[in-house]
Design a protein around this nucleic acid. Structure first.
Lengths: 140, 140
DNA sequence: CAGAAAATGATAATGATTATCATTATTGGA
DNA sequence: TCCAATAATGATAATCATTATCATTTTCTG
């Protein structure tokens, strides 16, 4: 939490009550991937007058600072999750039956990146989403 | 072109003038990834009264039949491209400078899929997008 | 050729996000 | 401490892509 506050102030942002609440929501929902609307619903428990515009602005800033990951699955909206300390970019498997999202190990894409770099590209980032049927749904 | 017509009628759809025009636009733009709005602009050269709703409906049907791929890059809209004959799913590298999109070989993800299957998943599909700086932009 | 079914085009509705703007909160000096 | 400058907030309008609606037109089948 401390290093997050640091990043905020380094970015020239203040840790307001609203930002604190939104950060807490993100921390309390480890492993989930929340949309802006979902963040708002939960955050209003602690800050009932919170507006959706502030949620969007805050999530955007936090993502810009690398505190959150901003990902778009194959639906119309972005989802956010707390970034780990490490620099690594991770990936997802989404179950097409139950909709749950599973994390995928990093490093799996290294060989692909190397191939592309050979062709003269500088790789900045990559996003992989796999659609599958999860083990539980497979039992039905 | 013939096998596309076949697929259409097999799906219970008629090859109307509008659908023909939209298909031609997609065929004439090999290697590009067009949004619905872009398809409309080009298609209106041949069919000026074409409506955007028809474009959306047609692209959706063609994608449903596997004639087109429907992909969402990290922006708010879908883009479409003609699917190859092969079943394979391909992937993209997008240059963050010039915005151009490059195709990526298939097969690169096989090892990752195998890993996930070991964990009990049934893989249905996967989407990989890599953000990079392309060789040309790298020279600036 | 008629009549049913499908397709079209105009436009309204929707959902997510961004922009605007008046109000409120915060902060670093006098 | 108080005050102005600046940043942040919340309400709401605007925007953008997409989907839904519906009256009209087209197409196919008999």
């Amino acid at each position: 939490m401390e290093h997050i506050k640091e990043k905020l102030s380094q970015g020239g942002y203040k840790l307001t009550r609203q930002r604190q609440v939104i950060l807490e929501v993100m921390q309390d929902s480890e492993g989930e991937h929340l949309s802006a609307e979902e963040v708002l619903q939960v955050a209003r428990h602690k800050s009932p007058s919170l507006g959706i515009a502030t949620v969007y602005r805050t999530l955007e800033r936090l993502a810009g600072l690398g505190i959150l990951y901003k990902t778009r699955f194959d639906e119309g909206k972005y989802r956010y999750e707390l970034a780990d300390d490490a620099e690594h970019q991770h990936h997802h498997v989404q179950c097409i039956r139950c909709g749950r999202i599973f994390e995928l190990d990093e490093g799996l894409l290294d060989s692909i990146e190397q191939e592309i770099m050979k062709q003269g590209f500088t790789v900045i980032n990559h996003f992989l989403t796999i659609y599958a049927i999860c083990p539980e749904c497979n039992q039905d």
